[in-house]
Amino acid sequence: MEKTKIESKKISVFYGDKKALSGISLDIPEKRVTSLIGPSGCGKSTFLRCLNRMNDTIDICRIEGKILVDGEDIYDRKLDPVLLRARIGMVFQKPNPFPKSIFDNVAYGPKIHGLTNSKDELSELVESSLKKAGLFNEVKDRLNEPGTSLSGGQQQRLCIARAIAVSPEVILMDEPCSALDPIATAVIEELIDEISKNFTIVIVTHSMQQAARVSNQTAFFHMGNLIEVGKTDEVFSMPKEKKTQDYITGKIG
């Protein structure tokens, strides 16, 4: 039996008066890949951003319901969102490396949290994170060059390395391949498969093929509602709901 890492209970999100998500209850298993699919504006990214409280940075956003990570409510007043985000990392749609060197990009998180005691330890951590993100061989000779000098696919892997470096338990990915070409996408997908042995991964994607390729569990969102969730092959081969069927066959969305 798979262990549940994140448990969301009746999550509703409002932007001002507008309801973006209504009553989402979804369990996310540990060390598996869960993909969230659905048409644009269905709330899948909003749900993802609830999981590490990134929505806190938006003033007009209001959240109801509970999200439990390892049984602990992350919207509890006593919980510090900053510490939560160190446990639940995030990779964004557009690669957003800091305007710093490749090394400093990866070292950013560990430095802030004081994860290493010496310079040698830090460079070891940077190296291993870059290796895990499959980027080290490409950049080992130019760690001091700016991260923005890399190609789009490399930048996105740098962002993954940056997220891995603080050893989070969960990595959230918000359409990580939508700005990349097919070859860079294939590299990232392989990488997702690789790191899912150690991390719980939640990925938002527009591409149903991608969801089918990388994920173990798939959740289909539509108009702010969770329509269906199940094992990926089951959702794609024999969806229980009509809407899911319509979406994956291209009738809606």
């Binding site: 590490n52 990134m54 940075t57 900053v82 510490l83 939560l84 985000r85 160190a86 446990r87 990392g89 995030m90 990779v91 964004f92 557009k94 957003n96 490396p97 800091f98 305007p99 950013y108 998180g109 802030i112 949290h113 962002c159 940056r162 997220a163 470096a165 603080v166």
Partner: peptide, 15 residues
């Protein structure tokens, strides 16, 4: 400075 820079920093647990 783009918001995505700040998001990237918050996402690794920076204040």
């Amino acid at each position: 400075v783009p918001q995505s820079m700040r998001d990237g920093s918050y996402a690794v647990g920076a204040t």
